[in-house]
């Protein structure tokens, strides 16, 4: 494990419209953990500008990037710029349960935190 991976993770939520900000607000209300998630919207920007927004939000890392859909502009922009970074992982299909889980596991390495959050997010999907 690298030193960078032991630093608490930041979470970046990349989504259409205002979804990211709304999800983060809800996750912060539930957990009380504020300031560790950053929203990025694809509204009003082309591919290049969206990539820059994501890279700026990620900063020096380490980080987990949560994307709304498992395909499309947000995912493509994230992967184009981040796929070769060892200190960043990308998770698709972001939901509230996923973000709440992440906020409680920010001390894990990026790959473990991403897998943990993805599992929680998946487990939250049910047809009761």
């Amino acid at each position: 494990m690298s030193n960078a991976a032991r630093e608490p993770l930041r979470g970046i939520v990349v989504a259409h419209g205002s979804i990211a900000a709304a999800l983060i607000d809800a996750a912060e209300q539930i957990t009380g953990a504020r300031g560790f998630l950053t929203p990025v919207s694809n509204t009003g920007c082309d591919r290049g500008a969206l990539e820059e927004r994501i890279v700026t939000a990620v900063g020096p890392g380490p980080a987990v990037v949560f994307v709304d859909m498992a395909a499309g502009s947000c995912l493509i922009a994230a992967l184009r710029r981040l796929r070769e970074r060892d200190d960043v992982r990308v998770v698709t299909g972001v939901n509230l349960a996923m973000l709440v889980d992440f906020l409680f596991h920010r001390t894990l390495p990026p790959a473990e935190a991403a897998a943990h959050a993805a599992a929680s997010g998946g487990n939250a999907i049910k047809v009761p």
Binding site: A71, G72, L75, I76, R80
Partner: peptide, 10 residues
């Protein structure tokens, strides 16, 4: 690689 990403959306 980018082609695969775009295919995922279709």
């Amino acid at each position: 690689w980018e082609q695969e990403l775009y295919r995922m959306a279709v």
